[in-house]
Every structure is written in C-alpha cells, then in structure tokens.
Design a protein around this nucleic acid. Sequence first.
DNA 1: TTTTAATACTACCAAAAGGTATTAATATAT
DNA 2: ATATATTAATACCTTTTGGTAGTATTAAAA
Lengths: 119, 119
Amino acid sequence: MIPNKTVAYALTILGFMATRNEAMCSAEYLHQQLNIPRRYLRRLLTDLASHGFLKSSSGRNGGFIFAQDLKGTNLAMVINKLEGSDAINNCIPSFSCCIVDKPCIIVHGWKHVQRWSKL
Amino acid sequence: MIPNKTVAYALTILGFMATRNEAMCSAEYLHQQLNIPRRYLRRLLTDLASHGFLKSSSGRNGGFIFAQDLKGTNLAMVINKLEGSDAINNCIPSFSCCIVDKPCIIVHGWKHVQRWSKL
DNA sequence: TTTTAATACTACCAAAAGGTATTAATATAT
DNA sequence: ATATATTAATACCTTTTGGTAGTATTAAAA
C-alpha cells in the first residue's frame, strides 16, 4: 500500500523511535538510521512535533522525543493529522455507492484500516 | 484513507459496476453516474481493461463490462495492478524496522488491508 | 457504404507532492 | 561572551500524478 511517502516516512520515524523509547533523537541521527532525505526529514519532524506526536527541543543536544500522550495514539490518528481532517474516514472521496442508491460494497474493506494496532 | 485518486476512482468504478452486474456500461454513462472527469475516466477504463478487470468492446453500442475472472478479485489485486508491482505487500517502502534489528511494530496494521472483502 | 457512437492512443498541460537550499532562531558548553 | 550543534521557517526547484486535447480506430446501424 502506498498512502504516500510522507505518511510512510512518518510511520517509519515513529516506529523506529518506539523501539528506543524515551530516548531523544536528533534529526541527523534519524537520517542516518532511517535513510530519509535530511531536509525533508527535518520538516516532517517539525510537523510531527507541531501536531503533538513528538516534543522538540532546540539548541545544542536538542532533538525530538515522544510526547507524553503518544501512548494512546494509533496509526489512523497519525495519518489523519498529517493528511488533514479525517483522511481515514473520508477514505474514498465521493464514493459512488454513497451517491447512488445501492449499498456500498467496497467500503467495508476500509473499515479494517481504522482499527490498526496501537503504536 | 487516500491511496490516491486513481485508485479511488478505480474502486468507485468497479464498485458501481458491481451493483449492475453483467450490464455493459459506456464511459459516458459512467461519467454521468460517477462524476469522474470524462477523459481521465476513459483512460482509467482502458487501463482496467488492459489489466483484465474489465472487457472493452469498441464501436457503436460498445462499452465496458466485467471480465469473467473478476469474481475472485479483491481490492488488493486491483491496487497492485494499478500501482505496479506489489504495492500492497511493499506497503511501507524501506520500512525502518525491516532494516534495523528490532521487530516491526507497525507493519502488522497493514496486514488487514491485504484481506479486504471480495468485490 | 456512409454515418455515428463508441474505445484507443499519444502528447501535452496543470497541480500537488517530494525534495533542496538558505537563513534565522535557540540553547548548551566552553 | 562566543562558538557550536541543534531546530524553525521560508522560498524554491523537481518529479509525479491528475486532467485535457486531438486524432485514429473500431463496429453497429441506417
């Protein structure tokens, strides 16, 4: 599945950081570990921080660390934040069956996606 | 979830056609029903046909109709065909946990997507 | 056999997403 | 205080995706 690279990167970052919980990670370190383009990675980290998934601290020895409330976070929440409002629930924009009278055959499949495992 | 518009359109088309099984649909008819941009819809229909999901017949009274073998088709197959090789299994490209030593926390979530309901 | 209603193909344009460069701001260590 | 190692912000370039235009091809109907 390809939601898009940004989402993939974000999950990669959070997944990686989850394996070293409570450790502060600099952008440079994450870049070396995860092979995500430096500059883009930085922007993403800033985004994740501003959305409350990470906490950032500037200056020497700074970096990024999980925000407290990440424990109750699941993948859907990450995607929804990054993709704007409710990307997962609005899964297939203007899905035909929701316009036409017949019941929606396909949408059921997407329901699973909304119950992803917690981080 | 937003795989991308092309995939969303494709699922919309197939979903709609599934509600009128065995009926031949012209591109113009589908355009009117589904509100997908005319030209782009045509291209997509051609693609779906060339990938074997639909059969096309040219000429007057032509159009598109389900191919025989669509009965065993699931959403993952459609996406994989449209997105190129194995888009679903390669879900998160170069996922960190597959590089690093620790087990992959996130990837489990995506497994669900591979077992979507049949069309 | 000519007209007409359809798909097929190819090339092109526009918008969005991915990625880079530069500079500013911040905070620690010496 | 100053140098240094970090994040923050903004503007820009590149690539991919979404969408359009024009023409060719096909086949049924008259």
